[in-house]
């Protein structure tokens, strides 16, 4: 690796880390979600500061060149991360679906209750409850 490239890589890694840390500071990211990215940044900085490290790992893994090893490792990491994100998205959609369904069921139940009350013709005793339901729906 040439000296220029090393400097560029170090600068890019540090900038990326700074950006991610700032987002965490501004509470834009949950801690659990930021752990992966902190680890990823640490790896970038480590590799750029000590190029001997990826060389060693590459030799251990048996890859042809260090560049190949880095590509392989990063792509693999990202694929795993992407899969986890799909998983989370799926969970999120399920939760949203459940919430929307519960809202609609509750709305229907309240409407029918009001109807039943109106049909029975006793608005004095149940008037307060009806008022609550009205305001809750707003």
């Amino acid at each position: 690796m040439t000296v220029t490239l090393r400097i560029v890589v170090i600068i890019v890694s540090v900038l990326t880390t700074a950006m991610i840390l700032r987002k965490i500071r501004n509470a834009r990211l949950q801690i659990e979600d930021s752990i992966f990215w902190i680890g990823f940044c640490a790896m970038l900085i480590l590799f750029s500061l000590f190029p001997g490290l990826p060389d060693l790992l590459s030799r251990l893994a048996g890859t042809y060149t260090t560049a190949n090893f880095i590509y392989l490792a990063v792509i693999f990491l990202l694929i795993v991360k992407l899969f986890h994100m799909t998983l989370k998205l799926s969970e999120l959609e399920t939760k949203l679906k459940t919430l929307v369904q519960e809202m609609a069921l509750e709305d229907n139940r309240r409407r029918r209750e009001e109807e039943a009350q109106a049909a029975m013709g006793q608005p004095e005793t149940e008037g307060k409850q009806g008022g609550d339901a009205q305001s809750a729906r707003m």
């Binding site: 949203l96 679906k97 609609a104 069921l105």
Partner: peptide, 17 residues
């Protein structure tokens, strides 16, 4: 008598409701 889903869930979500 109807359920009013506030957002579109698609046929599966609506039918499930």
């Amino acid at each position: 008598n109807f359920l009013d889903l506030p957002v579109n869930l698609g046929l599966a979500g609506g039918f499930q409701a």
